[in-house]
Amino acid sequence: MSIAVETDDELPVEGDYNFAYLDEQTKRMIRRAILKGIAIPGYQVPFAAREMPMPYGWGTGGVQVTAAILGKDDCLKMIDQGSDDTTNAVSLRSFFEKTAGIRTTYETSEATVIQTRHRIPEKPLTEDQVLVFQVPIPEPLRFLEPRETETRKMHALEDYGLMHVKLYEDIARNGHIATTYAYPVKVNDRYVMDPSPTPKFDNPKIDRMAALQLYGAGREKRIYAVPPYTEVKSLDFEDYPFEIQKFDKPCGLCGAENVYLDEVILDDRGGRMFVCSDSDHCEERRADGHLGPMAADPAAADIAGPTGKETAR
């Protein structure tokens, strides 16, 4: 990431978009919000979110954050549900290709900025990378306390008993904590934060992550951040400790274990398989010669697509 690379001799010509769509004043405003968010890990910083040329819910918050931090030398990866080639990822990737003209990639390790909806790549991120989350509802207390004035007070006073009321209800009704995504966390032992609708499987990755995490909510006009190596603890009870989802099978295609799997329906006769949600991770493993139990199945070939690495541009 390199911020503010625009120079006078590179002003856009009439009719062109400014670099990465947003004007420079707006980017500065967003950067100020980002810096404040980094200074107060987990705190939701209000910002003047702009109308973006895409509907709310398509990642307008994440797009604005990405636009504010992109530099000309950055390489961008877009993930939607762990995959680089689903609608949302494809649209947003082409949006930045068109407005910023930067390099994009499917490969986790090659990217400097990764914008994601729902998943965190399986491959550990590094200090040289930034992970941008698209957040639909940033307020973890919202479903328990509808008043914004009250939730702000609760954050200010670290008044978080209500979060445990929700977890208590989970255990009382289901025998275990049934929340599986948007699982609340406490950042740096201070602010309770909603890690966006990522599955709780990814919560341990948020903890002490080497990469900077930025969260953008466009409709709700909030930005928050987790700086590198910040402690992030998933809320739980002493006798019902936090646990991630476990899968009893490896990935059908690449045989990976301890990764987050998606269920894929193969036909209308009950055929199905479980494959890596992180498509880049799966492809890389297959390219390295790892094979899952269903890799040879002809039905799986459609899902797997052409093997071998692929870079968008």
């Binding site: 008044d159 978080y160 008993g161 209500l162 445990h164 009321v165 208590y168 209800e169 255990i171 009382a172 009704r173 739980d236 009870f237 002493e238 006798d239 019902y240």
Partner: peptide, 20 residues
Amino acid sequence: VSAGANVGERLMAVGERHYG
């Protein structure tokens, strides 16, 4: 929220973290 959570809320608010 359930009757149990209504009664337990104050305890959780002051830091009780043992469901049992």
